[in-house]
Nucleic acid binder design. Sequence first.
DNA 1: ACCTGAACACCGTTCAAGT
DNA 2: ACCTGAACACCGTTCAAGT
Lengths: 196, 196
Amino acid sequence: MKTRPYHHGDLRAALLALAEDTLRDRGPAELSLRELAREAGVSPAAPSRHFKTKQALLDALAVEGFERLTGTMTGVLERAGASFAERLTALTRTYVSFATGNPALLELMFSRKHEPNPPAELITAMQGLMTMATDLIEDGQRRGEVREGPIVMAAVPLAAILQGMTDLALSGGFTGEQVDEGLTETIAFILRGYAP
Amino acid sequence: MKTRPYHHGDLRAALLALAEDTLRDRGPAELSLRELAREAGVSPAAPSRHFKTKQALLDALAVEGFERLTGTMTGVLERAGASFAERLTALTRTYVSFATGNPALLELMFSRKHEPNPPAELITAMQGLMTMATDLIEDGQRRGEVREGPIVMAAVPLAAILQGMTDLALSGGFTGEQVDEGLTETIAFILRGYAP
DNA sequence: ACCTGAACACCGTTCAAGT
DNA sequence: ACCTGAACACCGTTCAAGT
C-alpha cells in the first residue's frame, strides 16, 4: 500500500482540491485558508508558500475552471457537425452542462471581471473562452450562415444569453427536461438574431 | 445651524449610505461592519441593532438598489412611446445607464441569485424588475410586434443580453459613444430575435 | 429603544526558526 | 524548498450593562 506522500506531497494541488469542494457545497464566503490548512493537516502558515494570498488561491481555481471548460468545448467541437447551428448547439449544451454541474466555480470564474487588476493568467484563461465564441461566429459568417458585423459585438449576445440561460437553469427550479426545452428555444432565438 | 442628530439620529440610514460609498469605491470585499461603525462614530456593536448580520446590511442595500432602478424605469416608461421597439430602447438605455453608474451595487443586487435562502424582501424586489421585463414582452405580443411563446423563456434572452451589454460597457474600456452604438446594435439583435 | 464595553472565537498574513 | 509556531492586527457577533 502507498503511504501518504511524505511531508504532504503536493500541498498546492491538495489545497486547490479542498477549496473546490468547500466552494461547491458551502459557497465562496465560507472558504477559509486556515480551515483548508487544517483539512490538509498543515500549519496555518503553510499555504502561503503556494498562494501568497487567499485571492491568489481563488484565482488559481478560476484559471483551472476556464481550462477545464475550454478543454471540454474543444473536444466537443471536434465531434460536432460543420454548420453554425450544429456547432452553436454543441457549445451551448456543453456550457450549460458545465455551469449546472459547477455553479459556484462558474461564478468564481467570472467574479473578477469588473475588478481593477485581474492577474494576467486569469485574463488569458478568460480570453480563451471568448475566442471560442468569436471563432464560432466568424466561421458562421464565412459560411454565410451568420450576418456580417463586428465580431465583438456579435459575441456579446451569445455569451450573455448563455449566462442568462444558465441562471435560469440554476435558480429557476426547473427539471432537466425543462432546461433542455428552454435550451432549444434559446438557440432558436440566437439563430434568428444572427440570421443574415 | 442644525446640530448633529442626537445620539446619532438615524444610524440605519447612515450605515446604508456609508456602506454604499465604500462599496462603490473599494468593492464589497473591503466592506467591514466595524469600519462602518467607526465612520459613523458608534461602537462596534451598535450596527447589530439595525442589521442583525453583515449579510442583512448587504441585502438591505440590494433591495434599495432594486427599488431605485425599478422606480426610474417606471418613470421612463411613462414618457416613452407605445411601440415595442421604443419601449425596449427606453428600458435598455435606463438599465445600462444605471449599471454603468452603479456597477458594484448592480453586482451586489444579483449576487444572492444562486444562494439557498434569499430573504423575502430581496426576492420581491428582484421580481419587481423581472415583472417589468415580462410586461414589456407581453405588451409587445399583444401589439403583434413580438412573436408568441412562453413569456418567461422570452424574458431570459432580454435580461441576459442587458447584463452582457453592461459587462462589456463596464470592463471593455469603451467610450460612451461606443457603448451607445453597441446598444443600438444589441437592441437590433433583440428585435430580430423577437420578430414574429 | 438604542447604544457602550468587553469579550469570544475566529480570520489573513508575516516572520523567525526549524528540518 | 517547504513547513512550523507564534504573533499581529484585524474581523463578525454576542451579551451584560448603561442611558
